[in-house]
Design a protein around this nucleic acid. Structure first.
Lengths: 290, 290
DNA sequence: CGAGGCCTTGAACGAAATCAAAGTCAGTGG
DNA sequence: CCACTGACTTTGATTTCGTTCAAGGCCTCG
């Protein structure tokens, strides 16, 4: 999903070096990751600095006086964090665990919008109306930090650095959603799934887990909903990637060599309809940037 | 794109009442719309209250003292407002005119992200990095308000009501982007195009123009990029809608009966892959909302 | 009037959805 | 312990939809 995603170096072209696959690998849920000081699963309160660190948003303020702290809460697998239409008052920052957010259309059909995990935030799409715009469900046991929006705003008013953090979080969310739109529009099924796996790989790496071996927390159905594909197509795409040798798949267990998957994506043709028609920009000069 | 979109009443089922079509209708560019006091095209400066009004974000502050004002700037058709990678410093609020924002992938292919028009804002995806994440191009002559982000932040710090406005704008953008994702994932080509036209219709209505007769400002290619379709498919979808009788199309001129288009969309089957599998939620009870 | 974008339409092809069936796995209860 | 259940996954066959390729029409501008 990163825009630098396709900048794999093209040294050597001996097709795709196959990944070696241990057929018995499993994803050991790392209850105690190898992060710096963020591994305290049983923590009950976090202050704003800790939250910024979890969000990976740099915070300039160093005024380390005692600040209000925010409560952690455990959610069990399958539980709903908030429902659509419910009155909005608090944001949730994911400290650990895996979730999905979904939209329900007018027929009650489910559209997956994101798979939040550590460092992601829930509820920002609901600020401008006073109601949650989407629904969040825990895909695993989760530890979430409750951040009452009003308290956050107040904090922002006290110190500009915190306010900046809020802007940054919102802007980043928007940026990510745009990347998703781009992915949905411009890519074939295999590429969508491949990029999704790379995205997960990077995410796991960021969180301090293995970037090459992990376990999917969501069903094929959910992945398909997220990527705009049927569950069968997701399954087939994974099988294809496996045959080519760039990933290993066994049910929910994934083994991936990002480098190879990059090359693989590059070898797929871009749909013609997406190609820029350089001359056709418009009858007008588009160069100068007043 | 509105979520109430599909709540058309189903009274009577005499298929779709055809729209009467004037074959000579054209979209008279309404330089002076029938809005309240927002029709001053030649205005050079706006204060924050005026900007909120244009954005259609309610602003609670009534402290009507002299506030800093923001400059308007004219952009000609085809000109680029900002380029990807350029240093970010200012947001743009569209006072009049039509634009597109695009992402360029690693091959220089263009992906349309939005078609901003009056009341929309440009640049919010660029706050968290210090660089513009997308490119904006004028599809018609435009009147934009330059809002230096720092100045806006400062204003927000002076008064909480303004800060709220910023949060609301950002949140709203995110919300809209989600609606787009949902559209892209869950609908067939005809439905995508139909909803796109309805979206435009509502937008024109909001701006005080005719909701039933308007002119497209973008090419089929650009619509296709936005909706994840080829330009031919867009063209065919419009022809289909025309044959069914729910819209009139002649090149860029559109005549539309929203009510009929709603019914038309409802009659299209939802792709099965999107259907909620109510029992399959997960082995766990999803009901309670801790 | 001619050129160049842009739009429309047809035909062939290809990718993904749909339909269908069998395999895997975890949990349950005999 | 093992068979049974139900959710999830995989794979194949078929159909549908959208893309691609190609040709012709339209409109604007010089």
């Amino acid at each position: 999903m990163s825009s630098a995603l396709l900048s794999a170096n093209s040294n050597g072209f001996n097709s795709f070096v196959p990944v070696e696959i241990d057929h018995d690998f499993k994803f050991a849920r790392p209850e105690v990751g190898k992060e710096k000081k963020r591994s305290n699963q049983c923590k009950i309160w976090s202050n704003i600095y800790e939250i910024c660190e979890i969000l990976r948003i740099p915070c300039e303020s160093q005024d380390s006086e005692a600040r209000p702290t925010f409560q952690h809460l455990q959610f069990k697998t399958g539980h709903r964090i908030h429902a659509i239409g419910q009155a909005f008052d608090t944001l949730y920052v994911v400290n650990s665990g895996f979730l999905k957010t979904v939209l329900l259309d007018d027929f009650g059909n489910e559209q997956v919008l994101s798979f939040p995990m550590q460092g992601d935030i829930l509820g920002v799409d609901s600020i401008h109306t006073k109601f949650y715009a989407s629904e969040a469900v825990a895909l695993s046991d989760c530890n979430l930090i409750l951040v009452p929006f009003n308290a956050l705003v107040e904090l922002g008013r006290k110190e500009a650095a915190f306010e900046k953090v809020i802007y940054n979080v919102l802007s980043r969310e928007l940026f990510r959603k745009q990347a998703l739109v781009s992915l949905l529009c411009a890519q074939k099924a295999d590429a969508k799934v491949a990029r999704f796996l790379i995205y997960l790989s990077e995410k796991f790496h960021e969180m301090g887990y293995s970037r090459s071996t992990f376990s999917l927390r969501m069903t094929r159905q959910e992945i398909g909903s997220y990527l705009g594909l049927s569950l069968e197509t997701v399954s087939r795409a994974m099988s294809t990637l496996k045959e080519v040798g760039v990933i290993g798949v066994d049910q929910r267990s994934i083994k991936i060599n990002e480098e190879d998957v990059y090359k693989m994506i590059l070898s797929l043709p871009t749909p013609r309809s997406r190609l820029a028609v350089p001359g056709a920009q418009r009858t007008v000069k588009t160069s100068e940037c007043l």
